[in-house]
């Protein structure tokens, strides 16, 4: 009897804890004084000063006290380009870390981002779940998810043409001019349309699982992918994981 009671109590705690967490994730973000909502950020004109509270999702690079970070709150994403950041602070920016960012809204080749920014770390943590945008590929509403952590399911690897004219599953650099360690470019299709995806080597270098996974792809493989919905002259997802389609 005691055992049953103990198990029931433990289960109750686990379920309650899970429910609390779920509630935490479901709770809308309450923004601080002078902080924009994501909708206000989207509505803000280019080159205007913006202040947002957001959560680090992934770090792309740090160089000479500047960090480039993918971030997201519960309503949308913010790409933080070359944000002022010491090396010590960069180490503190782990996935989920809440930061308050002040900078300027800008657009570079279609990528809307915050530049010339500064930030401070705040209390709070949130890791965004991946949103499935497979059905939105090729549609005008895909851009509404720009920079978000997303997933693509059941896509087929299509051939790319290597410098020697052969058909391959991926290229080092966009035209095959790179080598191991360069960005990886590969084609995937869905419903008869082909898209070019990237493993960005600053975000996921040659030591990462996704880099190895893409190098092992074969034309015709059907795969699921996760990554960030980056933009460069059109959608250019930066893929962070690849697995055989479930």
């Amino acid at each position: 009897m005691k055992k049953i009671v103990a198990i029931m109590l433990a289960l109750t705690f686990v379920l309650a804890f899970a429910a609390c967490n779920k509630n935490e994730a479901d709770k809308p973000d309450v923004k601080g004084e002078g902080v924009m909502t994501h909708a206000e950020y989207i509505a803000a004109p280019l080159d205007s000063q913006v202040t947002v509270e957001t959560y680090v999702q992934a770090k792309q690079s740090w160089w000479e006290d500047k960090a480039t970070v993918y971030s997201q709150d519960k309503d949308g994403a913010y790409f933080l380009y070359n944000m002022a950041c010491s090396e010590a602070d960069y180490a503190k920016l782990t996935p989920g870390t809440k930061i308050k960012v002040t900078g300027y809204k800008s657009e570079w080749s279609g990528e809307v981002e915050i530049i010339d920014a500064t930030f401070e770390i705040e209390e709070g943590n949130y890791v965004a779940p991946a949103t499935d945008v497979t059905a939105l590929l090729g549609s005008e509403t895909l851009i509404d998810h720009q920079n978000e952590f997303v997933t693509f399911k059941g896509m087929t690897v299509e051939a790319s043409t290597a410098p020697d004219g052969s058909e391959v599953a991926f290229l080092y650099n966009w035209d095959g001019s790179g080598e191991d360690g360069s960005d990886l470019y590969f084609n995937v299709s869905k419903d008869g349309k082909t898209y070019n995806f990237t493993v960005e080597s600053y975000l996921c270098d040659s030591s990462t699982a996704v880099y190895a996974a893409v190098k092992n792809l074969k034309v015709g493989d059907v795969i699921d992918m996760e990554g960030f919905l980056y933009w460069y002259e059109g959608v250019n997802p930066h893929i962070t994981s690849v697995a055989a389609a479930k």
Binding site: P163, N173, W174, D175, G176, S177, G178
Partner: peptide
């Protein structure tokens, strides 16, 4: 150094 150009690397 190349200009991301496969002909140059070749």
């Amino acid at each position: 150094k190349n200009d991301t150009n496969k002909t140059q690397t070749a």
